[in-house]
């Protein structure tokens, strides 16, 4: 299974229910398996622990419920600056 296929169902389901989740569970962490919301938690680690307890090594999604998901950057990696020399 390609990287992009893992969690595809869960990510799509999260997008479908996001607006509803924002009303009731804003900033909490949703635990999703397939098309089931398994719970929402205050901390990322709590959601992960609940996921492991229920699903073990199977894949599951842990995603924070926010209006806009943050984007990230590692400029040194993206700009090939690690170990660069002149």
């Amino acid at each position: 299974m390609e990287q992009t296929d893992i969690l595809k169902a869960e990510l799509e389901y999260f997008d479908e229910i996001k607006d509803e989740l924002l009303k009731t569970n804003n900033e909490q962490y949703a635990l999703i398996k397939g098309r089931n919301l398994e719970g929402s938690f205050t901390m990322y680690s709590e959601a992960y622990e609940a996921g492991v307890a229920k699903f073990g090594t199977e894949s599951f999604l842990v995603k924070q419920i926010v209006e806009q998901q943050p984007s990230h950057q590692i400029p040194a990696l993206g700009n090939c600056l690690i170990n660069a020399s002149f």
């Binding site: 992009t4 969690l7 992960y48 996921g51 090594t57 842990v62 943050p70 984007s71 993206g78 700009n79």
Partner: peptide, 24 residues
């Protein structure tokens, strides 16, 4: 470590942006 992806995030880089996996 046989770790499974638990989320994906948007990464910004000079070429634009990509989705990449998050692992615990």
């Amino acid at each position: 470590l046989s770790l499974s992806m638990i989320n994906e995030v948007t990464m910004n880089h000079p070429g634009g942006e990509d989705k990449q996996g998050i692992y615990a």
